[in-house]
């Protein structure tokens, strides 16, 4: 094991964490403001990836695809908010879970109907195809660096949006007191649709960005959705800051676990057993992390709103 490899894996972990942050920011925002648990968030991730792959395929431009993923996912988000989600705010969590699970079934099958069962492929744009040298120490994928960059930009953007703008002020008001914000005369329906569409757009862009690294297929949103849940549970449901910290923790622990645990196990076991034990342990490392954090802090690291 070399130090170079270690840093490369660490960067991979951060990149994975940034992607998880894009996913969980919307999830946690929707929960914080509207009190809604949204399983269909993974669907929006998938919609973003398909939109990007389709537009990039037709126009040949990844960047147009990326823009399309934002717009289409935001529109899909607004559509399901107005059509279904809106009726669920006053319902209990069970109804929310089931209705949004139903949305997963509907959207997944509809996408399969439209695009078939075969995965689409989305290429990394030419400009980001070559690895770049970092401080002469290691060559690292410029595309992955780009994802990290997008994650940081979004984190800063969300921070500014929430703390510095009128919309952010309303979102914060909505988090602390749903009755009050209605009394203030803010059009709460539009606000909710807006917040939901914003979360959807972030999920969509995450899907598009990751679609170029993995394949674009129906069902791609499921595993990511569950990881996003782990992230926001760790971070504290409703807190964007918590989502950021949680996402980085999960991303790094997962990636480094897969890299380090099988290696560490060779000190304890024979090579074959070490590979088995290390592999099994690393695949559940983040869940152990989550359980550990919840034992100490049952409501997550950062106290979120609405929980």
């Amino acid at each position: 094991m070399t130090l170079t490899l270690f840093f490369e894996q660490l960067l991979n972990g951060i990149q994975f964490g940034m992607m998880l942050f894009l996913m969980s920011a919307g999830l946690t925002l929707v929960f914080g403001v509207m009190g809604l648990i949204n399983l269909a968030h993974g669907v929006l991730y998938m919609v973003g990836a398909f939109a990007c792959a389709l537009v990039a395929g037709i126009t040949g431009s990844f960047w147009l695809g990326l823009v399309a993923s934002l717009i289409v996912a935001a529109m899909a988000g607004a559509l399901i908010e107005v059509g279904v989600i809106r009726r669920l705010y006053k319902r209990d969590h069970l109804d929310q879970v089931l209705a949004t699970y139903a949305l997963i079934l509907i959207f997944s099958e509809a996408t399969r109907w439209l695009f078939g069962s075969f995965p689409l492929y989305l290429d990394v744009p030419d400009i980001l195809a070559q690895p770049i040298s970092l401080f002469g120490l290691l060559d690292y994928s410029s595309y992955r660096l780009f994802i990290i960059f997008v994650g940081i930009i979004v984190a800063i953007g969300l921070y500014l949006l929430i703390t510095k703008t009128r919309l952010g002020m309303r979102i914060r008001a909505g988090e602390s007191d749903r009755e009050m914000i209605a009394a203030l005369g803010v059009d709460i329906r539009t606000l909710y649709t807006l917040v939901f569409a914003l979360g959807a757009a972030l999920a969509g862009i995450a899907g598009a960005l990751l679609g170029a690294v993995q394949s674009v297929e129906v069902g791609m949103g499921g595993p990511v959705l569950i990881l996003a849940f782990v992230v926001i549970v760790i971070g504290g449901i409703g807190s964007i800051k918590g989502a950021f910290i949680g996402a980085l923790l999960v991303g790094v622990v997962d990636t480094m676990g897969r890299f380090l645990l099988p290696y560490l196990m060779t000190f304890l076991f024979s090579p074959e057993t070490a590979a088995n034990v290390g592999g099994a342990l690393s695949s559940i490392a983040i869940y152990i992390l989550m359980a550990g954090i919840l034992i100490v802090k049952p409501k997550g690291l950062i106290k979120g709103a609405g929980s």
Binding site: H93, G279, A280, S283, I295
Partner: peptide
């Protein structure tokens, strides 16, 4: 030890943990 939405997500996460364990354990 947790309530509401946390309970939903944690039971889900525990099940995922066992799921991935079953996949990874040859």
């Amino acid at each position: 030890r947790t309530k509401g939405v946390y309970f939903i997500m944690i039971t889900l996460a525990f099940a995922q943990m066992i799921y991935y364990f079953a996949i990874a354990w040859p």
